Simulated assay, not measured.
Amino acid sequence: MMDIIGGGAPTAPATGDLIKDVSEATFMAEVVDTSMTVPVIVDFWAPWCGPCKTLGPALEAAVTAAGGAVKMAKINVDENQGIAGQMRVQSIPTVYAFWQGQPVDGFQGALPGSEIEAFVARVIEAAGGEVPDGGLADALVAAEEMLTEGDAESAAETFAAIAEQDPENAEAFAGLARSYLALEQVDEAEAVINGVPDAISAAPEIEAVRAQIELARQAENAGPVAELRAAVDADPDNHQARLDLAQALHGAEMVEEAVDELLELFRRDREWNDGAAKAQLFTIFEALKPNDPVVLNGRRKLSSMIFV
C-alpha cells in the first residue's frame, strides 16, 4: 500500500500537469498517448453524481501525492458520452487505469481512502514505477497552491481528502477551514474546526483558524469604514468607535491599518473594556503567520508601550 505520510519526497509537479479535464477531442493525446510513458488514471464522473464528489477529490489527492508517477484524466460523461460508451461505462463513478495505451486496472463506485491509495500504488507498480514515500506533504503543498491561486473549492476538496486519509492532520483540517473562509462560508469553517479530533484541537494551525473565524464573525457585523473613520475623527477618545473601526478595517483586508488603530486605542487607554485593544491585537496576531511583518512590527510597538 502506498504510504504517503512520511517525508523526503521530491516536490510534486504542478497539479495542472498531473490532473486534467479531458474530452473526446483530447482523449487520445491526454490518455492513450500519455500512457505510453506514464500510467494515466481515468475518472468517469458527472456533476449530479454524489459518490463522484467524494471519490474525485480523494483520487486527485492520491495522484498528487504520487509526485508525477501517475497522471489523472477527468471525463464528464454527460459531455463525453461517446468515450463513455466506448469504454462501456454503465454506472459512475467508474475508474480505469491506462498503461501503454491499454486499460490495465479499474473499479466502480466510491472507495475508502486506503483502497484508493492501494489502487494508485498498484497502477504505478504495474507500470514498473516506484511508489513515492512522503507524498502527503506534496498533496498539502498542492492544496495550498490552489488556495493561494484563488481556487478555494478545489483546495477544500483536496484538504478534505487528505484529512480523510490522515484524520489527525492539523494542516489538512486548518486548510479545509481556511478554504471555507475564502469562500465566505464561515459556518462551514467553524463546523470543521469544532469537529477536529481532540488530539489536534490545540495545534497552532487550528488555533490560528479559530482566530480567523472570530475575525470573520466580527467582519460580518462591522459598520462602514468611512462612517467609523468620521466618528473617530470627530472624537478621538471614542474608544468604541475606534475598536469598531479596527474591526471594519480588518474585514476590508486593511490589516496593518487595523493594527495601527488598535495600538492607538491601547496607547490612549490600555485598560478600557477589560483590555479590549490588546485582546483584539492578539487575535489578529494569532490569525497571521508568526513571521508576518504586520505581526512583527505590531508586537514590537505593543511591547514598547507596555514596558515604557
Rank of each mutant, 00 (worst) to 15 (best):
N221R: 10
R217D: 03
E205Q: 15
A222C: 08
A222H: 03
A160D: 02
V186M: 08
A142W: 05
S179N: 12
F159K: 00
I206S: 01
Q218C: 07
A156D: 04
R210K: 14
E149F: 13
E149P: 01
V209Q: 05
Q212A: 14
G223R: 09
A174H: 03
D198Q: 10
Q185G: 05
S179Y: 11
N221Y: 08
E168F: 11
E207T: 04
A160C: 04
A155D: 06
E164I: 01
A161H: 00
Q165V: 13
R229N: 07
E144L: 12
V141I: 12
R217T: 01
E145T: 10
A211L: 11
Y180F: 15
A203Y: 15
E184S: 12
P224Y: 12
A222F: 09
E168A: 11
G195R: 13
D233A: 15
S154K: 14
A202Q: 15
E168R: 10
R210T: 06
E188T: 01
R229W: 08
A199F: 13
P204F: 12
A189I: 02
A211I: 02
L147D: 11
A174D: 00
D166L: 12
L215E: 02
L176E: 07
D166Q: 15
P167Q: 14
A226E: 12
Y180W: 15
A222D: 06
E220R: 07
A211H: 10
E190I: 05
E190H: 05
R210W: 10
E157A: 12
A231F: 11
E145D: 13
